[in-house]
Design a protein around this nucleic acid. Structure first.
Lengths: 168, 168
DNA sequence: ACTTATTTTCAGAAAATTTTGAAAATAAAG
DNA sequence: CTTTATTTTCAAAATTTTCTGAAAATAAGT
């Protein structure tokens, strides 16, 4: 396989992978492109490589920066803005998890808390099934939440992170 | 909060949660409805509760069964088909992970394997950045894969599963 | 075998999401 | 201050995904 062909293949696969997880395909493709770029790319580079518009590029790069997995870099003597992706996949995964935990897991825990407080006969089968489920989900989500928090905390400590990875 | 109101809230939240993870909103809502139903529901029950068409109901229930988190049950003396959801959230999570691992993680590992075999100068910065990334992703995906396989295996063993949960 | 109940399929319609591109905003250079 | 380069925004268009509903298929009952 040729390098350029392999790159296309990679970008394509990463896009499919991302979109199966609810991430915009183009955003995932831009991420893929930056992951394998040996140096920072600007908006025109991205537009050209993926054949997408400037607006699309701009919005998705901004999102990637919100996820903390892409950074803006300035190159002296160049007015354009350049972008680089975090290259350590472990870090990338941690940052994505951290964000998804905040955006999606925490709200579920909140919702379960709210809906558990319902009026009415707790002996009634319907009511019981409902409260049981809300409790179960809340308990599970809290476990997942703290497991993730643990992983993230470990990773944010450089020394611990390095040690762990040495034994992988 | 009233029970019916709380149920709506729950179904709604589960739908939002699901769709942020790339799962069809209606499928997640049907799942939510079944999770809190004290007894099996048939297609008409689901159509009525969620105000959706028969075709939509049928397709999404089929998908839920493919995920192994909803089962068809037959009630003696009734020609209609009834559906129940697996009520143990831990099991639900395991089955979803097992399926997603198969559908999404395994293909990524495969793709990385393929694209690593590229021709050309491995000293070239572009080539190097590319192969490094493919290796890193493959390594990470394999780790995630075996971690999940471990969890799933533990869970499929009733005794071990019960023990683990006792210490949660 | 015929009738009736129920489920499944799938083409077209509707809805939701993504993308474009040009105009507005911003920022740097002269 | 003016010009030029670059980025951002966002309404409208394109695309993708989801949903409907009626027809076809399947299954049960008489």
């Amino acid at each position: 396989m040729e390098l350029q062909e392999a790159k296309q293949h990679f970008i394509q696969s990463w896009g499919v992978f991302g979109s199966s997880w609810g991430i915009n395909r183009t955003m995932a493709q831009i991420h893929a492109l930056l992951l394998i770029a040996p140096k920072p790319l600007n908006a025109d580079d991205i537009m050209e490589a993926l054949q997408i518009s400037r607006g699309n590029t701009n919005m998705n790069v901004r999102d990637l920066m919100n996820w903390n997995i892409v950074d803006k870099v300035l190159i002296p003597g160049d007015r354009k803005e350049y972008f680089v992706a975090e290259k350590d996949i472990w870090k990338v995964a941690m940052r994505i998890m951290k964000e998804r935990k905040k955006r999606e897991l925490d709200p579920i825990i909140q919702t379960m808390e709210q809906i558990k407080n319902i009026e009415g006969d707790k002996k009634d089968a319907e009511t019981k099934a409902f409260i049981d489920m809300a409790n179960q989900i809340q308990k599970f989500a809290k476990q997942a939440d703290s497991a993730l928090a643990g992983l993230i905390k470990a990773d944010e400590n450089w020394f611990t992170g390095t040690l762990l990875k040495m034994f992988k």
